[in-house]
C-alpha cells in the first residue's frame, strides 16, 4: 500500500520499457542515416528503374513516358554499337590506368618508406594532383596541351619530337593522353594508401625474416605483399570504381572526341541524358553501368578472396 496503486504493477512496466528501449535504441540511432539513404539512394534508384521502363524524351513530344517494358534495355544491349564501343574503351582505360597507377604508386611508396630529410615535403608535393578538383585538372591540361600555345606541346617540340596535330586531336594520341592525365592525378592516391600501409606494418616478422636470412625479394613477396593485401584490394577497388566513372576530364578535354575515340561510358550516358534528353533510354544506360560496376567489383572481390583462401 505504501506505493499506492502505482506500486506493484509499475515495476514490471519499467523493466519492459527498458527492454524495449534497449531493443530499439539501435534502430533509433540508425534512423537518420537510413532516412538519408532512402531519400538519396534508394528512391532515386527506384525512380531510375521506373524511368528505364518508359519511353521518355524531354525533347520529343511523342515520347511522353509511355510504358516500354524492357525495350530500352533490348535496344541498348542488342543494337547500340556506340554503347558497346564506349564500354570497350572504358574497360581498356580502366585496365591501363589502374594497372599503371598501382605499379607506380606502390613503387613510389616503397621508395619513400624510409626516413630522410625533406620526406614530408616530398610526400605533400606528391599528393597535390589528387587534391585538385577533376574539372580544374581538365582545364589546366586543356591549356597545357593547346597545340599552338600549350607548355606540354612546347616541351615535346623542344626535345625534337615533331607534333603534326594536337595531342587531344588525333585518334592515336587522344585516349593515351587522357590516360596519362588520369595516371598523373590518381597515382598519388595509391601511393598514399600504400605508404600508410607500409608505415603500419609490424616490425617483428621482418626482424624474424632477416634473422632467418630471407632476401629482400623474399621479404617483399612473402611478407609485405600478403600483409598489405587488404589495403591493396581496397585501393584497387576504389580506383576501379572511380576510373569506371571518369567523366570530368573527358567532358572538358575532348567531349568524347575526336570522333568517339575517348567516349568513355559516363560521357556516353551524359550525352544521352543531358544533350539528347532521352531520359528513359538514359536511365537504362545508367543502370547497366551500375550493374557493370557491381559485376566488376564482385568479380574482383571474389578473385582476391579466393587467392587469400589459397594463401
Amino acid at each position: 500500500m505504501l506505493l499506492g496503486r502505482w506500486g506493484p504493477s509499475h515495476l514490471p512496466l519499467r523493466k519492459e520499457r527498458a527492454v524495449i528501449k534497449r531493443k530499439y535504441k539501435g534502430y533509433l540511432l540508425l534512423t537518420p542515416t537510413l532516412v538519408l539513404l532512402v531519400c538519396l539512394s534508394i528512391i532515386p534508384f527506384a525512380y531510375a528503374l521506373i524511368l528505364s521502363l518508359r519511353h521518355l524524351n524531354l525533347k520529343i513530344p511523342r515520347l511522353a513516358g509511355q510504358f516500354a517494358g524492357l525495350d530500352n534495355y533490348r535496344s541498348l544491349m542488342r543494337a547500340d554499337a556506340e554503347f558497346w564501343h564506349s564500354m570497350g574503351i572504358t574497360l581498356l582505360f580502366l585496365i591501363v590506368v589502374v594497372g599503371i597507377e598501382f605499379l607506380l604508386g606502390f613503387a613510389l611508396a616503397l621508395l619513400l618508406n624510409r626516413d630522410f630529410r625533406g620526406k614530408r615535403v616530398l610526400v605533400s608535393l606528391a599528393v597535390v594532383p589528387m587534391m585538385i578538383a577533376p574539372v580544374a585538372v581538365g582545364l589546366m591540361w586543356r591549356v597545357a596541351l593547346n597545340y599552338e600555345l600549350g607548355i606540354v606541346t612546347y616541351l615535346i617540340r623542344s626535345v625534337g619530337i615533331p607534333l603534326k596535330e594536337a595531342l587531344l586531336g588525333t585518334s592515336a594520341t587522344a585516349l593515351p593522353t587522357l590516360m596519362v592525365i588520369d595516371i598523373w592525378q590518381w597515382t598519388p592516391f595509391i601511393f598514399l594508401i600504400m605508404l600508410a600501409g607500409l608505415h603500419g606494418l609490424p616490425k617483428e616478422p621482418y626482424e624474424a625474416a632477416q634473422v632467418d636470412g630471407a632476401s629482400k625479394w623474399q621479404i617483399f613477396r612473402m611478407l609485405t605483399l600478403p600483409l598489405l593485401k587488404p589495403l591493396i584490394v581496397i585501393a584497387l577497388l576504389l580506383r576501379v570504381i572511380d576510373a569506371f566513372k571518369t567523366f570530368d576530364q573527358v567532358y572538358i578535354l575532348t567531349g568524347g572526341g575526336p570522333g568517339n575515340v575517348t567516349d568513355l561510358v559516363c560521357m556516353f550516358a551524359y550525352r544521352i541524358n543531358f544533350k539528347v534528353y532521352n531520359l528513359g533510354y538514359g536511365a537504362s544506360v545508367v543502370l547497366v553501368i551500375f550493374l557493370m560496376i557491381l559485376i566488376v567489383t564482385a568479380l574482383f572481390y571474389t578473385v582476391t578472396q579466393k587467392k587469400e583462401e589459397i594463401v
Binding site: Y147, E148, G257
Partner: peptide
C-alpha cells in the same frame, strides 16, 4: 588549316584570327 583545328569550334577559330595565324 592549323593542325589543331580538329579540336576547334567557333571560339578557337576567332582566337586564331586574333593571333594572326
Amino acid at each position: 588549316a592549323p593542325p589543331g583545328v580538329v579540336d576547334w569550334y567557333w571560339d578557337q577559330k576567332t582566337t586564331a584570327f586574333q593571333k594572326d595565324i
